[in-house]
Amino acid sequence: MTDTTPLLEVKNLEGWYGESKALHGINFDVHKGELVTLLGRNGAGKTSSLRAIMGMLPRKAGTIRFDGHDISNTPPERAARAGLAYCPEERGIFSSLTVAENFDLPPVVAPEGMSRKEILELFPNLERRWTSQGTKLSGGEQQMLAIGRILRTGARTLLLDEPTEGLAPVIIKQIGSVISALKKRGYTILLVEQNFRFAAKLADRFCIVEHGRVVDVIDRANLDAEKSKIQAHLGV
């Protein structure tokens, strides 16, 4: 029974920014240990979906369930404490904090977090820049810091918003291997991507977002058959 209940369940999610509606009914599930990706063009509503799950959207409707609890109305700090870790699209590295302070900022919410040593093994570049100002890091290093710091917290469900955006191919590759390592460690991951080739290597399921709706969900097994359809959606 418990195996079939999704860990994260999003139903008829609608969302607004002031008067303008950004989400028109998002539906998808993520099971424990799965890596699901939200694919879609610019402005489709991927970031807004993550923000809604985190309780960061000013106004929304619909249901979000996580780990057996309804979190549709919880404020962001409670969503985080429930075990959701968020890595924003703009990375959110604080310029008034050093790399070390940025790394230590997110509070620990559950006991089984990774140690600093383990994380620095995944992202060896960070250690050399430990005392620099956070925003003095390169884009790739900032992305590593943004992912690294949430692994410390013990949260087992990660919401990653376009971790490859604007990065060089070697860094993308490094981040790809980190994500698959995390998946092997049993993390549940909701990955937002526009880079289909990147997501294709990692995801168990692909949710296509268009105009604030999930218009298609494709399993990894059917990926080859549906590839052209996905590419048509993404306009690549």
Binding site: E77, F94, L105, V109, T153
Partner: peptide, 24 residues
């Protein structure tokens, strides 16, 4: 201090600090 780093971070981006689990 650590407490101060929360304050500085919340000055820059209170929403994100909240999303990390701090009761801003």
């Amino acid at each position: 201090t650590k407490l101060g780093s929360y304050l500085r971070a919340a000055t820059e981006n209170p929403d994100l600090v909240r999303a990390f689990g701090v009761n801003v």
